[in-house]
Computed example of a mutant assay.
Amino acid sequence: MNNVMSNKKVIALYVAPALLLIIALIYVPIVQTGYFGLMKWNGIGEKEFIGLKNYAKLLQDSVFWESALHSFLLALFSALSLIGYLFISFILASKVKGADLLRKIYLIPMLLASVAIAQLWLKIYHPTNGILNTLLVSLGIDNPPAWLAETDLALYAIIIPIIWQYAGFYILIYYAALKNIPESLIEAAKVDGATSLQIALQIKLPLIMNVVKVTIVLAVVGSLKYFDLIYVMTGGGPNGSSEVMASYMYQKAFKSFDFGYASAVGFFLLVICLVVTYIIRRLTVANDDIN
């Protein structure tokens, strides 16, 4: 068996099917997207090569940059929400009563489709019959806001259900990482007189820091390319106030039928995600060196 697995031809034979799938499903579409960005194309007719005009137009497109700002705001709030998820995970992992039930409750949003979550929160945010405004009226607020119809509030109103949707995912990751910490380390710290706060910050948190770094990348990059719930709830409105890069790409492709420009937006979104991932990894590596 060892002789077979040390044979490079056999290894290549085992790896080839997965490698071909990755190339066909990931790398080929990426190259095609970049190529289509060089074209003037409505998605059906003949393609016209126009070089880098779509990319040059993109750099001067104020609507795109506004949608990029919205995506980065979503990424920022998603990253900050990890602090809350981490705090909840510490509580659940400390053998609190009912932790198993709470863990299952937190996972419920992950079991729902994004469209179902969007419909649920549309009912919550309804300006006249929604639970939120009904509660505000009962508290004496006569004119509660129309959350999804006001340009200053729409984006932030959508960020809340997005954070709620993925809470269970990150809490479960942190909880699993905390439960994998050897109990002997915790007991030794208690014997040495460490408090619960000291154990959490000086023992548990450093031991799961690699997991935390991975979740930061997942949260930020996932937010930059987020689309479905925003599209269902507002479609990028009102007046583009909740437009993000992915929804702007969709609008250009399937409503304006400018597939060439939409491909340029998609390829540029990929580049942004790669750059942000690289920056986050460099910052975390720098912190490792300091430690």
Rank of each mutant, 00 (worst) to 15 (best):
L229H: 02
G84Y: 00
G237L: 05
Q165P: 08
T128W: 10
L155H: 04
L178T: 01
M1D: 13
F227D: 05
Y14W: 14
L283T: 01
A194P: 08
V4Q: 09
S242A: 11
V28G: 01
L120W: 07
S78P: 03
T215P: 01
T134M: 12
K40Q: 08
Y231K: 09
I159F: 06
A93F: 01
S62T: 13
N143T: 14
A177E: 01
V265L: 06
A253H: 01
K40I: 02
I44G: 00
T134I: 11
A157T: 12
L178K: 02
G240A: 12
A56E: 11
Y278I: 15
P145V: 08
M209P: 00
T33R: 11
G51W: 06
A262I: 03
L19W: 09
I88F: 03
P161R: 03
T134V: 10
N180E: 09
V221C: 10
L270M: 13
A118H: 09
L270I: 08
I290N: 15
I160W: 02
K225L: 09
V115K: 01
L207C: 02
A219H: 03
V212S: 00
A99G: 05
A200G: 03
S62F: 05
T277I: 04
P29W: 07
Y261W: 02
I272F: 02
